[in-house]
């Protein structure tokens, strides 16, 4: 089991560092011959989760992005200090109306194998798990 984390200010600017960090870690996880789309899908889920976390926090607060992985799974956590949220309260995107926003969690759930959200006093943690071998959930 290996792990890496980065602590970011809750500002949109941090997406840049978050993306660079994610690319670096994905490179470390998947090695030289990654399965097609897998790295991209992980990067996409992370981008969605980070953007959500940053948007719901004050800029003086911190968002912590963490990866831990072994040969079979990668577990990605996004901790923020923003307000309480429950996954079941988040509505599905409005596809009929071609909405401009509200796709984040839907994309995360579609691309990842398991998604949980825990609320604590003073923050919450989104945990996304993705299998790295055979049997990826079809999107």
């Amino acid at each position: 089991m290996k792990a890496r984390t980065i602590e970011l200010s809750a500002m949109l600017d941090s997406l840049r560092s978050g993306a660079l960090f994610t690319d670096e870690v994905i490179g470390e996880i998947l090695g030289d011959s990654p399965p097609p789309h897998l790295g991209y899908n992980i990067a996409l889920a992370v981008s969605e989760a980070l953007t959500n976390a940053i948007r719901h926090c004050k800029s003086s607060e911190k968002v912590i992005l963490g990866f831990s992985w072994d040969s079979e799974h990668v577990v990605i956590t996004v901790d923020d200090q923003g307000c309480e949220l429950h996954l079941e309260d988040v509505p599905e995107p409005d596809f009929e109306d071609a909405a401009e926003c509200g796709y984040g969690l839907y994309i995360i759930r579609t691309l990842m194998d398991d998604v949980t959200l825990e609320n604590f006093t003073g923050g919450k943690r989104l945990t996304m798990t993705k299998r790295l071998i055979e049997g990826n959930k079809p999107s």
Binding site: A19, A43, S47, T51, A98, E100, C101, Y103, I107
Partner: peptide, 15 residues
């Protein structure tokens, strides 16, 4: 790379 925020901007631009 594009995520849903980028997609949202495209939809807004199109509108």
């Amino acid at each position: 790379f594009i995520d849903s925020s980028g997609m949202g901007a495209l939809v807004g631009g199109l509108r």
